Amino acid sequence: MTSPLLMIEDDGRLAQMVAEYLGQSGFEVTHAADGEKGLEQLQLALPELVILDLMMPGIDGLEVCRRIRALPGEAARVPVIMLTAKGDPMDRIIGLEMGADDYLPKPFEPRELLARIRAVLRRRSENGGATSTTRSTPVLRFGSLEIDRDARSVQVGGVACELTSYQFDLLVALAERAGRVLTRDQIMEAVRGRELEAFDRSIDVHIGRIRNAIETDSKDPKRILTVRGVGYVFAKLQE
């Protein structure tokens, strides 16, 4: 059984090459040549993941990603891997801010794209590093905060919080280890299954997004605390 993916990319030759390569690993890639067509295709047939180019004519990848996250229902939560030809780290940070789950700079090796796709989909289907004790119940509760791992949903005081699939898994990894200080490497290893590259600070961007969603005041967080020079700790807040 093949897994459907959507690639929104204006470079037809690249899209064909990616489709052929991923097809050998059980993925069926539908190609859309621009952002508008990609959004139409996504709503016609929901893919398991979107591969999205940043630089496209018409609406660019950032705007497409923003519109995806504004869609109703499951479409808003489809994982997005953003492709960027630019070397400026700010482009990647903005992409993550817009709701992308991962990014890959061009030019890239097709097997690295395949590895990232598998990692994102694996995070979506697994609880990533939970112990037998924490797996005994699908819902983690910390005062008004509820994290439902089976439904992959987060609520604060009964109000749903909008998180990407990557941000959800990041929050779960922290919450399952509540009270334990984790380095960025440890967090990324728990979520991605591989060590964080030293120059990759995207985790800080995701933490900021999570704080915006679950904290009363993201500038004065009470749940996810920064331990300067070390990493982060999820506080066992029971308000």
Rank of each mutant, 00 (worst) to 15 (best):
F27T: 06
E28F: 07
E28A: 15
V29D: 01
V29T: 12
V29S: 02
V29C: 12
T30H: 14
T30R: 14
H31S: 12
H31N: 11
H31W: 15
H31Y: 09
H31M: 11
A32S: 15
A32M: 07
A32Y: 05
A32I: 08
A33P: 09
A33L: 10
A33I: 12
D34V: 08
D34H: 15
D34F: 10
D34T: 11
D34R: 14
D34Q: 14
D34A: 13
G35V: 09
G35H: 01
G35W: 06
G35N: 11
G35F: 02
E36I: 12
E36N: 04
E36K: 10
E36A: 14
E36Q: 13
E36F: 07
E36D: 15
K37V: 14
K37Y: 06
K37Q: 15
G38K: 09
G38T: 09
L39Y: 04
L39G: 02
L39A: 03
L39W: 09
E40P: 00
E40Y: 03
E40G: 04
E40T: 12
E40A: 14
E40I: 12
Q41G: 04
Q41F: 08
Q41C: 05
Q41E: 13
L42N: 01
L42Y: 02
L42F: 03
L42I: 10
Q43A: 09
Q43R: 15
Q43Y: 03
Q43T: 15
Q43M: 13
Q43F: 00
L44M: 12
L44H: 09
L44P: 00
A45R: 15
A45V: 14
A45T: 14
A45L: 10
L46G: 05
L46S: 07
L46A: 10
L46W: 00
L46M: 12
L46R: 13
P47I: 04
P47Y: 02
P47W: 02
P47A: 05
E48F: 03
E48C: 02
E48H: 09
E48W: 02
E48P: 00
L49M: 06
L49G: 01
L49S: 00
L49W: 01
L49E: 02
L49T: 03
L49D: 04
V50P: 01
V50N: 01
V50C: 06
V50H: 05
V50R: 01
I51G: 01
I51C: 10
I51P: 00
L52M: 13
L52R: 05
L52V: 04
D53P: 04
L54G: 00
L54T: 03
L54Y: 05
L54W: 12
L54F: 10
L54M: 10
L54S: 03
M55W: 07
M55H: 11
M56R: 05
M56K: 03
M56P: 06
M56C: 07
P57G: 09
P57W: 14
P57E: 10
P57K: 09
G58N: 10
G58S: 11
G58A: 07
G58V: 08
G58C: 09
G58K: 13
G58F: 08
I59N: 04
